[in-house]
Amino acid sequence: MSGEIMPNVIGVLHARSEAVLPVVTRQTVNQIECFERALRAAGSPARFLPEVAVLPYDVADCFRTLRRVIAEHPQICINWTGGTKIMSYAARRLAEEMQLHALYVNTASREILFEDLGSQNRYTDLIDSARLNLNVLVYLSAGGHRVEGADTLASFRQRCTPDPALVRAATFILDTNSLERTDLYRLAEAENQSYRPRALDGNFLHALIQARLIQPAANSREYFLSPETLLHPFYLQSPQKQNAAFLRGTFIEVFLWDQIKSRSAVDDVAWHVVLNPGETGRIVELDLMMASDGRFLVLECKSSVELNELGDLIEEQYARTRQIGRLFGQWVLYVHRHRDEFNRPGAADIIRSQEQKARHYGGCLMWQDDLPELPIKVSEMLVSGVAAP
């Protein structure tokens, strides 16, 4: 095991291993818990045997320790993908010397090399995400993160799937005109005093009530913000604050969840994922996450930004994705504004340069102009491993 344990996870899942014997160092022994949680998230029942520690840069110790382990487990299959180069070299050499089965996970090409070194039979298989059940929770667990509301994969999916009433309300809100948007902003302020909308029709208002965003007041056609919510609370925010934020802008997260879920080839889409709850300095709230074809993608939504903020936002999204998933993650920064809304001199050039910067950082900067194509671009990024042009 080394800094990136997804190759270990993929190897166990692909080989359908019944047991796992981790070879670790003093620095990587604490990853075993993450390794096991990732396997459980994928549905693997493999049991864990006591770990074996080696000195990562001492080739003699690696040979000596691994030789002993192999003698105790003669049917072992060696995954020599991880560890230091010395650990990997010793494992592969001993597999050949003792004519074992071995595998190597090539994450760049999404292939696994299998070797029967007794018969010299070698072949490669593609990493099949669907068969291996490489879902979002697997990647997060392998990255060392705990996820709020994710005791099991079923509970994670239930928590990270928006209620259909929220999806319907988000669809109504997306298509609002200026008068309707004014009503929504006034409703978002209706905590202690009711508001009578001027432009929202009955179907629109009914959708907001069904989504528990607003509730009728005593006076006819007047409404308050609902004190209940179908949204997941951000830390230190009341249900009313959550509902107000949805009316003002966070509805776009739910709308994009629905668009990607229904219009792309990606089935594993999670909404409002909270990482490491209760851990000071490690709490992260992610708008959308999705996994497919051996990779995952983080999508951050912004309802409004200034051009001079884009550079920092791009770097922040890149760093956050690397922190969450290291080599396997990709990202999209979606801004819910049209490019031509920015009237400052040189705005078009600034936007083009920031879009190029996003691609250079392995991600993609998208705008409201790109909304119809967003689900397709997300699919392309997950399949190709690069930002869609």
Rank of each mutant, 00 (worst) to 15 (best):
G249E: 01
V298P: 07
V9I: 14
T124F: 14
T250S: 15
P372E: 05
E51V: 07
N30R: 14
E315P: 05
F156G: 02
D293L: 08
T229G: 06
R68S: 13
R339A: 01
P22V: 01
D61A: 02
E373H: 15
R352Y: 05
D201G: 12
P372M: 11
A207G: 05
A270T: 06
E228S: 09
E189D: 15
K241C: 03
Q323N: 14
L166C: 03
S141T: 10
F224M: 06
E306Y: 15
D183H: 05
G249T: 04
G149R: 04
I260D: 03
R64P: 03
T25H: 07
E306H: 15
A154F: 11
V284H: 15
I324V: 10
V273F: 03
R168N: 13
I314F: 13
Q330F: 08
S262C: 12
T176N: 14
G83S: 11
V386N: 12
R47C: 01
E148G: 12
E180V: 01
A188L: 08
F172S: 04
Q120N: 13
K241E: 11
A142W: 07
R186K: 15
L275D: 03
L256F: 09
S262R: 15
T84E: 00
R198G: 06
V54T: 10
W80T: 00
L225A: 01
E355H: 14
P277M: 00
T25L: 10
A244N: 09
Q354H: 13
Y104H: 11
E228Y: 11
Q193K: 11
Q158K: 15
E222G: 01
Q354D: 02
G278K: 00
P162S: 12
L134W: 04
L132Y: 08
I32L: 10
L126N: 08
V167T: 09
A188W: 08
S44T: 05
V335D: 00
